[in-house]
Design a protein around this nucleic acid. Sequence first.
DNA 1: AAAAATTAGGTAAATCCTACCAAAATTCGT
DNA 2: ACGAATTTTGGTAGGATTTACCTAATTTTT
Lengths: 161, 161
Amino acid sequence: MTDEALNLTDIKILTTLQQDGRITNQALAERINMSASPCWRRVKQLEDEHYIQGYRAVLDRRKIGLGVMVFIRIKIDRHSEAEAKKFEQEVMQLQDVVACYSIGGDADFLLQVVAPDLDSFAEFAMSIVRQLPGIKEMQSMFVLKEIKPFVSFPVKRLRAV
Amino acid sequence: MTDEALNLTDIKILTTLQQDGRITNQALAERINMSASPCWRRVKQLEDEHYIQGYRAVLDRRKIGLGVMVFIRIKIDRHSEAEAKKFEQEVMQLQDVVACYSIGGDADFLLQVVAPDLDSFAEFAMSIVRQLPGIKEMQSMFVLKEIKPFVSFPVKRLRAV
DNA sequence: AAAAATTAGGTAAATCCTACCAAAATTCGT
DNA sequence: ACGAATTTTGGTAGGATTTACCTAATTTTT
């Protein structure tokens, strides 16, 4: 509760845990050349301070039957804050929309959607997404290949103030 | 090594581990109403068969100093497979490009990029991304708000053949 | 330079993992 | 439908890990 910034140890810990979220504390401690006690304490601290939001298992999308992934750009009717809120709330409920961002630039929202196959996606896009409140435009970008799947954020030394 | 499909237990396990990748085996077993032994065995099996690719810590992007996230649509010069490969390889090296997809639709690639602030992003976009081989068009979509951050894939019973 | 505060390292009890075994349930052939 | 074979389950115990606590070392402050 003093410095509020990340030192080199923290950076090593966060980098390592992003690669292997189930590494044992002992192995982690060895990796960063520290004994187990202070290492464990730092991890707990990073968790308590919410630098680490949580831990997740990463699944093979295709193996669990989700052969199709699509990014959808969506524009909604402007001039209605209520409509936007409603849109956001409804999107939140959709399990097949695995991520959704409000974006600047040309579109209003970027949705990341998964489906077992093209037919399922078409059905979902037409009867669910299209029917969301206030939709004006919609453009699908099909993922042909995951060149670089998301793994981790680069953790760098925070710029001094 | 018999069925090759996911039963209800597997689905519960995968769903739970996507939410909490560090849950203890005992707690997981209780959650799915199974004793620890078979639960542990199933998890190991799901790991061995690569339904589970790994475990990761999820960090708070802003807390680690990455205030800006942008999706960039990029079109590259067509008619050159070699150029595309080169592009992919170079993108792979860029730490600030946290994800990259080859996409159908209007654009060729979708890049997910992070940066500490707008200035850093501008610098990165101009002097690094713009200079990638074969770039024809480039359009940035700034993330204003993460309506629904990616957490997990929906795991459903696989359709019987 | 001494005192205070912070961080590191060690230790031990509690918990958890993990490999093994036996029991139960299921499948299969007859 | 029955018994044999196979698969799956539940229990157990040794080993590893976690986690709280204490002391020593280091750094910071005055």
